[in-house]
Design a protein around this nucleic acid. Structure first.
Length: 873
RNA sequence: GCGGAUGUGGCGGAAUUGGUAGACGCGCCAGAUUUAGGUUCUGGUGUCUUACGGCGUGGAGGUUCGAGUCCUCUCAUCCGCACCA
């Protein structure tokens, strides 16, 4: 029997699809449109197996929707700007542009080998000037409309490399290459005022606009935006050495109810007050410098031990007139609220840690439990005792104590009362605050979209005129990438940088910042839908496709990318480019691909292909040296636990690789790549091919379905239609692993099927179904089978099968019978048998009767079509 | 530190959403076919027990006729934390 020759088949069908333009979008205006998109790849060098998983998922949806009669848009492009290209140029020479486009060339070829149903005519890279010219245009438009603003922000500064560092380049407070302690430095950059849209970005999470998003992603975004109702108020300051014009300290708090428990005030190390005293006192300056060496990463700042230093100033409590000490504290974030707080150690854990360390007062003002009030004296800490004897800050609700007029109030009443009192005193007001910060959109790097702005000493920041766009990156020599700092900001780029001011005609320089790559990825999906030369999108064309109906990508993008894209769409809408505000109707976040790690006796990492696996033991492929098997981890080049999709495609075929990536785990979860797993997929392909080969030409013969089928043939028809029903539902719900399990089961049911006489049309239906249901997962195999069966045209163009409802019903079902919750027997009954008859049948069952012999029946619970439980004692 | 998720046989997972725990695949065991096989096919495979049966969904409690599923506490792992993409 002929084996499935996947190598020949894959190139043959890819060519056919290509020649016939099968996957071009906008083919038939009469069809409903469906836009499916996977997050576009960064061209890092080669496709890895995680890409295969991501794009295989999108491809299943694209092919499935196409078969269901949709006009499908399924495009591909490249998120091509970014830091790795500059690092590669630095380490290996060359130019970031050449490295990037070279990688794209390679990766495009690798993706095409996977046989994806992609409309390649729409491909672009974000580093194409034809793309980023529109981004520059929109930037200027947003600026004009006030969505963008230039202001100061803090960055990680490497004093040796003279460069801004990304958080990931800061290791233990030191630059990753220089090893020099990092400083926090303030510089002037551009911001998108995303906080102005915080309210709507938040509202859309709950008003049904994002009904097709996973709840946990929405929850993450809600928490990220972090809307809080609180109080902004000022503590009058007292001290000999106050900065000029500063006589109070504005703070923000979400717990005004605990104001009577205030024991000190705190400011961030970057706070103006901290800066003021650092200039006067070297000890303060040292402390501030130490805090700043932590870098800008929020995680690092909040994980650090709580530390601080007192300032020679006090703040007066508005209620008690007590003078509270003021500290610089390393856990206070300048970006949140006003960068200053009042601390109530009894009811905030961080404040408590700090107060303990510096011997500050702890004043409980909330009694957690009823009757507990009398235990509490001011200064006592009993309110916070835990069962195991530790004392922790009590952050829950309770009754106010030691709080003047608020005594006896529940906390939720004391909170507005405290705000009202502060407002009455004219020392502050209730406000809404967001954790979300404005989006600093520029980077001090070469390989990004230039900011189309000229900086003139006379006129300030001036937009580059429309007819001079795009501002393209200057061509500079490869040696420039080996020099520390931003090449755009150096003499090598002078010819580009020096220019005349478009406004006054005087000498000026270009802004040397480039845009964050998140800007590039915030609207690429719109450009896929419509690509006019003279504007970002044609509104009618773009809105015909948008929003993306199914977006697929990694959970690591749950917040930033997805929030930025939502924000950017709103800006585009206000500029009239689209009527859409939410870019992604349905979102699916897929898991990562993991792989076991291997090390030789010397502790060197080994690639999987250097290792021979036999059961649970591993040896080196060259010479039988023992190999230790390590943890199963996310694939990474450094640990060498990577597999090459190309080698997999060579050995087992693209279909097997795609199929295995979807078969083993639910798609939102991580999946472990195993050689045996892909072998199983390959075996399945061969078994399908061999099964279908028995039905050669059956579709072309097209005998009519007889009316009265034998029991066996009817059972096969039922299996066929149940499989159609199940697989269709599974694909719609992203349960690819279950769809594939059903295909395995169905293949098992086809064993020994006859193809003559009455059986011919039944077998034809079964084989046709198997082929079509397999097609989204193994499209090349499906075409090969389709041809073998004599199907009309291409399998990918055939309409998706429909299940016949009448064939989904069972005449007899098996019901388990429990006695006291334990399964003791089963009965076979008609699904619609009345309850009392089911009960009678259950009690009559011999196995059940045995367990009831010495018991009295108390109750019988019959769940129709499900189960019977007899309660007896 | 904060926020989000995950945890079921030797392994990946399934369980109609409170109703037979372990579908399907991998691995393993046995048998058959083959000149040979790390091929293909057939059967078996949670665990303890000779059996009757007991026990089993990270751990500890709880609700219920019935819990992998709901509630409380807890442990472990993973993702994000704003200049990596």
């Amino acid at each position: 029997m002929a084996k499935y020759a996947f190598r020949a088949a894959e190139s043959k069908w890819q060519k056919r699809w290509d020649d016939e333009g099968c996957f071009a979008a906008d083919q038939d205006p009469s069809k409903p449109k469906y836009y499916v998109l996977e997050m576009f790849p960064y061209p890092s060098g080669k496709i890895h197996i995680g890409h295969v998983r991501n794009y295989a998922m999108g491809d299943v949806i694209a092919r499935f929707k196409r078969a269901q009669g949709f006009d499908v848009l399924h495009p591909m492009g490249w998120d091509a700007f970014g830091l790795p290209a500059e690092n590669a140029a630095r380490d290996n020479g060359g130019h970031p542009r050449d490295w990037t486009y070279g990688n794209i060339e390679v990766m495009r070829g690798q993706l095409k080998r996977m046989g994806l149903a992609i409309d390649w005519s729409r491909e672009f890279a974000t580093c194409d000037p034809e793309y980023y010219v529109h981004q520059q245009r929109m930037f200027l438009e947003f600026w004009k409309k006030g969505f963008v603003e230039r202001r100061e922000s803090l960055v990680n500064w490497d004093p040796v490399e003279m460069t801004v560092l990304a958080n990931e380049q800061v290791i233990d407070g030191k630059g990753w290459r220089s090893g020099a302690p990092v400083e926090r430095k303030s510089m002037s950059t551009w911001f998108f005022k995303i906080t102005e849209r915080a309210e709507d970005l938040l509202a859309a999470l709950d008003d049904g606009r994002l009904a097709g998003w996973p709840e946990h992603v929405k929850e993450m975004q809600r928490n990220w935006i972090g809307r809080s109702e609180g109080l902004k108020m000022a503590f009058p300051l007292k001290g000999d050495d106050l900065p000029e014009g500063i006589d109070d300290l504005p703070i923000y708090t979400t717990r005004p109810d605990t104001l009577y428990g205030a024991s000190f005030l705190g400011v961030a190390p970057d706070h103006p007050l901290a800066k003021h005293f650092a200039d006067k006192d070297p000890a303060v300056a040292d402390f501030v410098a130490e805090c700043q060496a932590l870098g800008t990463s929020e995680a690092d700042i909040e994980k650090a031990e709580k530390r601080g230093i007192a300032l020679p100033v006090t703040g007066r409590h508005p209620f008690t007139n007590e003078e509270l000490p003021v500290y610089i504290a390393n856990f206070i974030l300048m970006q949140y609220g006003t960068g200053a707080i009042f601390a109530c150690p009894a009811h905030d854990q961080r404040d408590l840690d700090f107060a303990r360390k510096y011997g500050l007062a702890v004043k409980p003002v909330i009694a957690p439990r009823e009757g507990h009030e009398t235990d509490l004296k001011a200064g006592d800490f009993k309110s916070c005792d835990t069962d195991d004897g530790r004392t922790v800050a009590y952050t829950g609700p309770g009754t106010m104590v030691h709080s003047g007029p608020f005594d006896g109030m529940p906390t939720d009443e004391a909170l507005p009362a405290a705000i009202a009192k502060i407002e009455e005193l004219g020392q502050g007001a209730g406000t809404t605050n967001y954790r979300l910060r404005d989006w600093g959109l520029t980077r001090q790097r070469y390989w990004g979209c230039p900011v189309p702005v000229v900086l003139c000493e006379q006129c300030g920041a001036v937009p580059v005129p429309e007819d001079q766009l795009p501002v393209q990156l200057p061509d500079i020599g490869p040696e420039e990438f080996k020099t520390p700092g931003n090449p755009l900001d150096r003499a090598c780029a002078d010819e580009w940088r020096n220019c005349t001011c478009p406004q006054c005609g005087g000498p000026a320089v270009r802004d040397t910042d480039t845009m964050d790559t998140f800007v590039d990825s915030s609207w690429y999906f719109a450009r896929f839908a419509s690509q006019p030369d003279d504007k970002p999108v044609d509104t009618a064309q773009a809105d015909a496709w948008l929003p993306v109906q199914q977006y697929i990508g990694g959970i690591e993008h749950a917040i930033l990318h997805l929030l930025y894209a939502r924000y950017f769409m709103r800006n585009m809408k206000e500029c009239g480019y689209t009527d859409v505000d939410e870019p992604f109707t349905n979102l699916f976040t897929q898991g990562m691909v993991t792989h076991a790690t291997f090390k030789d006796a010397e502790g060197n990492w080994l690639f999987p292909e250097q290792v021979e696996l036999k059961g649970n033991t591993a040896t080196a492929i060259d010479g039988n040296a023992p190999v230790s098997i390590g943890a199963i981890e996310k694939m990474s080049k450094s640990k060498k636990n990577v597999v090459s999709p190309e080698k997999i495609a060579d050995a087992y075929g693209a279909d097997a690789a795609r199929f295995f990536m979807l078969s083993d785990s639910p798609p939102e979860r991580d999946v472990e790549w195993t050689e045996s797993g892909v072998e199983g997929a390959w075996r399945f392909a061969n078994r399908v091919y061999e099964a279908v080969a028995k039905g050669e030409g059956l579709l072309a013969a097209s005998a009519p379905m007889p009316d009265n089928l034998s029991e066996d043939l009817l059972a096969l028809r039922k299996a066929t239609h149940k499989t159609i029903d199940g697989v269709t539902g599974d694909i719609e719900n992203f349960r690819f692993n279950k769809a594939i399990a059903r295909l395995y089961e169905f293949l098992g049911a086809l064993k020994g099927v006859k193809t003559e006489g009455d059986a011919a049309p039944v077998a034809a239906e079964a084989f046709r179904t198997l082929t079509q249901l397999t097609a989204p997962f193994m499209p090349h195999l499906a075409e090969e089978c389709w041809e073998l069966l004599g199907g009309e045209g291409l399998c990918c163009n055939a309409a998706w099968p429909k299940a016949d409802e009448a064939l989904l019903e069972d005449d007899v079902i098996t019901m388990p019978i429990q006695v006291n919750g334990k399964r003791r027997g089963e009965i076979k009954v008609a699904p619609d048998l009345p309850k009392d008859e089911v009960e009678a049948a259950a009690l009559a069952d011999a196995d059940v009767a045995r367990f009831l012999a010495d018991k009295t029946i108390r109750k019988v619970i019959v769940v129709p079509g499900r189960i019977v439980n007899v309660v007896a004692g």
